[in-house]
Amino acid sequence: MLDVTPGGHGHVVLSAITKSYDGRHLVVRDLNLSIRKGEFLTLLGPSGSGKTTTLMMLAGFEYPTSGEIRIDGAPVHAMPPEKRNIGMVFQNYALFPHMTVAENIGYGLKVRRVSKTEIDRRVRAVLETVHLAELADRRPGMLSGGQQQRVALARALVFEPSIVLMDEPLGALDKKLREHLQFEIRQIAQRFNLTVIYVTHDQYEALTMSDRIAIFNDGQVQQLGSAEEIYARPVNRFVAEFVGDNNCLRGRVTAVQDERASLKLENGTIIYARTTEHVRPGSMSTSVIRPEALRMSDQPFEGAMEAIVSDSIFCGDQTRTVVELAGKESLVVKSAAHSEAIHPIKGQTVHVGWAWEDAWALDA
């Protein structure tokens, strides 16, 4: 469930935050978050879910309609962005094209009338941190996308902030470079004990980088927890479908005993899943099962259902097999490409099942 501590003692605390631009529609509603010092928290959700608005309120570029934000126990409502000791990194790097890398990084310090000696010291140090010392005299137009993003990160770090906010910083990069920079950003955050609040709609990014993830939808946090908790124990169907792949089977709850619920599918098949707060005998529920939790065989086995293979896709490190149950329900089975699991062909009859502990009965 949500780990919220309104008015708590976190490094950054958001208490009962709401935000509306027109006075009618809430972009963020009743948001409570407590973020620890040195924590890497990712705000993950679809476009329009309120995550970037939350980031802008933390930065001071937007103000809550109601509620309070505190940093180290002090309210920051009346504090302008430049006084909050926060670094910002955006997807569009916003570098000055006529300035060198070093000038771009040191510009904010110059505006704050920091001495030239101190600016030079800080710029050199941060360039070493992001592995760009040899490019200090180049202009942004001479750099690759990944190098420009490192300059933007260095510009945020040069202020020696305690908090860094990142809004889709890797969205414009290719997959391989994005994965490389995910690791680098995580390493830098740990080295300097930074509190990082990171916005993305990329679930892989969130799972690999975060200490905790806050899943946003419709202006609310649906679930807050570690990557493992979010992936393995989703609290509702939205979280289950948004994070990772999931098979969803809808049925009516016929019985609940201890931790196990039984659901009757439309085709009459009875399946079993773990109970959650959504489950009531007689109510409709959706059972969700991760594709890697499914077992597939060309021979019948206990608890298995007969299915017909409708597609098989080789994905390099894995094979994804789509099967169709009686009643036109489809399931995706994921297996390692070089495992001993069967790799059937289209039209073949197979048997598919799972351990009931690997399935969750959620809202319909």
Results as ranks from 00 to 15, higher is better:
Gly7His: 07
Ser20Lys: 13
Gly23Thr: 13
Leu31Glu: 02
Asn32Cys: 13
Ser34Gly: 14
Glu39Ile: 01
Leu44Gln: 05
Lys51Phe: 07
Leu55Gln: 08
Met56Tyr: 14
Pro64Thr: 10
Met79Leu: 15
Gly87Leu: 09
Phe90Met: 05
Ala102Trp: 03
Gly106Thr: 12
Gly108Glu: 09
Arg113Thr: 13
Lys116Asn: 12
Val126Phe: 04
Leu127Pro: 01
Thr129Phe: 00
Val130Asn: 06
His131Leu: 11
Ala136Gln: 12
Leu143Phe: 09
Leu165Phe: 11
Ala172Ser: 14
Leu173Glu: 03
Leu177Ala: 05
Arg178Tyr: 02
Glu179Trp: 00
Glu184Cys: 09
Gln187Gly: 00
Asn193Ser: 15
Val199Asn: 04
Ala206Gln: 07
Arg212Val: 09
Ala214Lys: 13
Glu228Tyr: 08
Tyr231Trp: 04
Phe238Glu: 01
Ala240Asp: 11
Val253Cys: 14
Leu263Gly: 06
Gly268Tyr: 01
Thr269Trp: 00
Gly282Met: 07
Ser283His: 04
Ser283Glu: 05
Ser283Ala: 08
Ser287Arg: 03
Met296Phe: 04
Glu306Ala: 04
Ser312Lys: 03
Ile313Arg: 14
Ile313Val: 15
Thr319Arg: 11
Arg320Trp: 13
Thr321Arg: 05
Val323Tyr: 03
Leu325Val: 04
Leu325Cys: 05
Glu340Met: 08
Glu340Val: 07
His343Lys: 15
Ile345Leu: 12
Lys346Ile: 10
His351Cys: 02
Ala359Glu: 06
Ala361Arg: 05
